[in-house]
């Protein structure tokens, strides 16, 4: 339970950091912000890797394998599409 309180503290403080940082992003970049933030939420991959590689049971391995595939789409697709969009924003043409 103590661990949970520490985790909750970290969570709440991070939400406040998130509000501060994101509020400064101009509307110009809101679409790449969303796809980029999306890629960051693919950090679930970390949990997926452990689930897929720990070999607890066949079922957990299969669930972990699917989770790895899902989360990798999120990470790879998210970062690349954000890069593609940001490359289009030019000061002059």
């Amino acid at each position: 339970m103590e661990e949970l309180i520490v985790a909750l503290t970290v969570f709440v403080l991070a939400v406040f950091v998130g509000f501060e940082v994101i509020a400064k992003v101009p509307p110009l970049l809101h679409t790449p912000l969303m796809s980029g933030a999306n890629a960051i939420s693919g950090i679930t991959l970390v949990g997926a890797l452990v689930a897929a590689g720990a070999q607890a049971t066949l079922l957990t391995t299969v669930l972990g394998f699917l989770a790895v595939a899902f989360a990798t789409v999120n990470v790879v697709g998210g970062f690349l599409v954000t890069h593609r969009m940001l490359s289009m924003f030019r000061r002059k043409h």
């Binding site: 969570f11 939400v15 912000l33 939420s41």
Partner: peptide, 11 residues
Amino acid sequence: LIISGALVGAS
């Protein structure tokens, strides 16, 4: 994960 998720949630 908690920090990253919270950032995206706030966004």
